[in-house]
Amino acid sequence: MFSGEQIAALFAELGVTHVVTVPDSTIGKWGAAIARASDMHLVRVCREGEAWAVAAGLHFGGARPLVLIQCTGLFESGDSLRNVLHDWKLPIFSVIGYRSFLNQETLPGDSCLVFTEPVLDAWKIEYKLITSDSQIGTIREHYLACLAAGKPGAVLIAEGKA
């Protein structure tokens, strides 16, 4: 949907300093461009639960981190996400790949489609669904709105395959 250059430019424009990530086949393609960006650092973690804690530490230290994971990683994130966003109420923004949303042929019956949005609702994370490349402005607007409100938020990036 988006190129790595588009996303890296957007994150840089938004003042993101660190992108904490576990890749998938869609968002992982952005990594190289993000890593090349001079004002941003790509932090590769081993599991998504780590990403929220690393982002929390970065936030405490005055950086502006963003978590970039797939929805399966959102499911894995549970307790760490709960702690960072709800115990400590830190305004960490996340960009989450929405597996199979655009194409269910690779994984027919992919339960990501059943659980992703209800899980975000359960964690009380306000999100916007991004289904086309015309919506890059929606990412910008939602990020800035969450930043201004001092609260967490997310965008779901519709993906075509696993």
């Binding site: 650092h41 973690v45 929220w52 690393v54 530490g57 230290g61 005055g62 950086a63």
Partner: peptide
């Protein structure tokens, strides 16, 4: 998650 949180602080500062 304490080491991960500490990593974030260490990277930021």
């Amino acid at each position: 998650q304490a080491p991960s949180l500490a990593l974030g602080i260490a990277l930021a500062q």
